[in-house]
Design a protein around this nucleic acid. Structure first.
Lengths: 234, 234
DNA sequence: GGAACGTTTCGGCCCCCGCCGAACCGTGCC
DNA sequence: GGCACGGTTCGGCGGGGGCCGAAACGTTCC
């Protein structure tokens, strides 16, 4: 009953494009999404209303703007799971159509391949490098599904980073989650731990947003921090 | 691109009903599914072809029958995740419409509420009781997501049950997974461990299928085994 | 061989839904 | 106040897709 309804919300190419865009974890305005998906503002407005009514998106009105974002991490993982489902034709999904002849598009996607956010954690080559590093250093294990080790916990504490109180508790957000990376076709880290790392990196200006998309640039400070804390050299 | 396509497969009420029915983990014939969803055989046939082409279902032809089943555990968890997504209107999904005036339907659903399979593991009151028991006995912890303890591993070994070799390894099936139970609105156990328990229970005739659905009956042997091994009394 | 049955293919119907443009509303800026 | 702009509502259009029945195909059983 409800399965079909929920899937129906994601079954439209335009609404799906909205959700994929919102996977960067930030709030977009209705107009931005409309231009992104190349539909009229009126069309976008209707789609947004349906996605909000369905509980997938949350809205926040500010003046004459309507900001929307994914309703929560569960929605993000749901969409990631669906988007990373292997299609029989091609083994894994590829980034949005290269739009022949668009240089701007090409540089954007190459920047995103280097480093970007995936909802609220790090992805791209940066993301998988970080995952390799925390695994190699024993901060996270990947025995029966990924888990934060005691060593990882003290590492976080030294860093002065705290996980949200309900993380890992039943009903709360998982501490560590692996998330398939579209560009790298390998895993990077999500969950409360991945989100905390990403938030810290942004707070301490180790990485910064490039423009308004999900692409990131690693700052000189960040380069140093990554090298010292995790032995990551990009 | 692929998100919309995949979601589109599940967005149709009839196809969704097929998938929900197939969550019992067994193979159904095209005709059975058609009757179950109350559509013409021709309609069902077309739907099945699309679901198979999309990689959600696997088929097996035998004589004049076409058996279909879910393509794998990933598909089952995907559908479970979608189906258990809380709708804003009603907090959680309820079992299929009670079909007013159908006694047969009513007894079937009450039997399913007692004990049933959920893809390839145990659900219903039996399922959540088993989960409570293995948690209470320390066979499984639920700290950072559910995990099998060493004690749980030796318990399995004593029982003579083995997990598939790739279980828990990266890329393999998770050892333990919690799965929201529709009737109980609490969690029961899935993953390789949950599947192994269910398979063992069926192999050793602790439970048996009632008719052709997902409902189970606990046998006297099963009652004894559950009591001795887990302290579960129903 | 013939009948019954499960399944598939095809044609046609109809409804749903995504799209747009035009008009309208509210906010913010000058 | 007047204008620009983001967003919304509404009417209308068009296409896609789900549904069925009829007919055909293949298997099984007698």
């Amino acid at each position: 009953m409800s399965l079909a309804h929920l899937a129906g919300l994601l079954a439209d190419p335009t609404r799906a494009a909205f959700c994929m865009a919102l996977l960067d974890g930030r709030a977009w305005t209705a107009g931005e999404l409309a231009r992104h998906a190349r539909v009229a503002p009126s069309t976008a407005s209707e789609h947004l209303s349906r996605l909000i009514a369905g509980g997938l998106l949350a809205e926040e009105r500010q003046g004459r703007h309507r900001y929307v974002r994914l309703a929560g991490p569960e929605v993000a993982t749901l969409i990631e799971d669906l988007a990373s489902f292997p299609t029989p034709a091609e083994p894994t999904d590829r980034p949005p159509a290269p739009a022949p002849g668009s240089l701007r598009e090409a540089t954007r996607t190459s920047a995103e391949a280097r480093a970007r956010t995936c909802y609220d954690h790090l992805a791209g080559r940066l993301g998988v490098s970080v995952r390799d590093a925390v695994l190699a250093r024993g901060l996270v294990t990947d025995e029966d599904g990924p888990a934060l080790t005691d060593r990882g916990r003290s590492w976080l504490a030294e860093l002065g980073v705290e996980l949200p109180p309900r993380a890992g508790r039943s009903g709360g957000r998982p501490v560590v989650r692996t998330c398939l990376d579209w560009t790298e076709r390998r895993s990077h880290l999500g969950g409360a731990f991945g989100a905390a790392l990403c938030r810290t990196a942004l707070d301490r200006a180790w990485v910064e947003r490039i423009g308004s998309g999900r692409a990131l640039r690693v700052t000189p400070d960040g380069d140093r921090a990554l090298r010292e804390l995790l032995g990551v050299a990009l």
